[in-house]
């Protein structure tokens, strides 16, 4: 069932793939993605750290769009889940935003997904307290 909603995203031109994780970065589903679950978890955790940082400053991050030269990554956070889409062209962004919103809400209706999401729901601040940070990251976090 969730495949159908991943496919909706995949049908948008220039989309490479998408994946969904819990708020701990555990990959619950993916489509069209070559990268390993470990790489995807790393990507998700970095987005979730930003979410945690915003949460600490009283801001709720619900959407993040990352633009590179020939790459666009969009992350949507809703109901303790993160949906990420990797795309090669930013021209499709309007359609992609809408499709991701609709797909995420449907994916979260899946019992298996919603159960896992609930079990992984956590205080966002934990991601900044626990986890592996290198020296540069620790120095920047200590500035706060």
């Amino acid at each position: 069932m969730i495949e159908r909603w991943f496919q909706e995203i995949q049908n948008i031109p220039s989309v490479k793939g998408s994946f969904i994780t819990t708020m701990r970065g555990t990959v619950m589903g993916k489509h069209g993605i070559k990268e390993s679950d470990r790489q995807l978890q790393n990507m998700a955790l970095r987005i979730l750290r930003i979410h945690a940082l915003m949460h600490q400053s009283g801001n709720k991050l619900s959407e993040i769009e990352l633009y590179w030269n020939h790459l666009l990554i969009i992350g949507k956070i809703s109901q303790n889940a993160l949906l990420v889409t990797i795309c090669e062209d930013a021209h499709v962004i309007s359609l992609l935003r809408i499709t991701m919103n609709v797909s995420l809400s449907h994916i979260l209706q899946e019992k298996k997904i919603s159960k896992k999401v609930r079990s992984h729901a956590t205080d966002p601040g934990h991601l900044l307290k626990k986890g592996t940070f290198d020296e540069e990251e620790r120095a920047l976090l200590a500035q706060k």
């Binding site: 790393n42 970095r46 930003i50 991050l61 619900s62 959407e63 993040i64 990352l66 633009y67 030269n69």
Partner: peptide
């Protein structure tokens, strides 16, 4: 910015242009 740069390491040939975040 550091997290976003690290996140894109699988696509290291790319140059970060913009980060857009929707807040409250």
């Amino acid at each position: 910015v550091l997290q976003v740069k690290r996140l894109a390491e699988p696509y290291a040939d790319n140059r970060l242009e913009f980060i857009s975040m929707l807040l409250n």
